[in-house]
């Protein structure tokens, strides 16, 4: 019974962690805007945490560059299984407007596996919430597979 309780509450109340991976701040402030009164995702049980060891879902904004790819990999590895990754914005998907710059590796999926891509430059809070909901479906599948 304890196991099923954990299983349910994991998907119903996901703890998210946000990492800015070389973004222009446009997406970051929209992620934060999701947590503030107008959008307020906390009413659905989504809690923003700062510690990767507490997090279920990783929100990554921005392009990966040669300096922070190790940090991103490190954060991902520290998160406990099962976990989901959501790449936010055009930069997170492909590198966006910066994809030709010399220090840019590309999208988040060059370094860690990504479950959901949220489009937009910057992505709107509505789109981010939608992306998190999609990500949670995948997350729930992973929880069930893990038993």
């Amino acid at each position: 019974m304890f196991k099923s309780l954990i299983k349910n509450s994991r998907a119903k109340s996901p703890w998210i962690m946000h990492f800015d991976c070389g973004s222009c701040n446009g997406c970051d402030i929209e992620v934060l805007a999701c947590l503030t009164p107008l959008y307020d995702v906390e009413r659905f049980g989504v809690v923003n945490v700062g510690n990767p060891k507490h997090a279920d879902v990783l929100l990554v904004t921005g392009t990966v560059n040669h300096r922070n790819k190790k940090v991103l990999k490190n954060l991902y590895d520290q998160m406990p299984e099962p976990k989901a990754v959501i790449a936010i914005g055009a930069c997170g998907a492909t590198g966006g407007v910066f994809r030709d710059a010399y220090n840019v590796v590309g999208g988040v999926d060059k370094v860690i596996p990504v479950d959901v891509y949220v489009p937009g430059c910057p992505a709107k809070p509505e789109a981010i919430i939608d992306g998190v909901v999609e990500g949670l479906k995948k997350f729930q599948q992973k929880v069930e597979q893990a038993g």
Partner: peptide, 14 residues
């Protein structure tokens, strides 16, 4: 350097 993208050099490509 964690956010360095090198966008000043993009003038050569855009």
């Amino acid at each position: 350097g964690y956010v360095h993208r090198g966008l000043e050099m993009l003038v050569a490509k855009r």
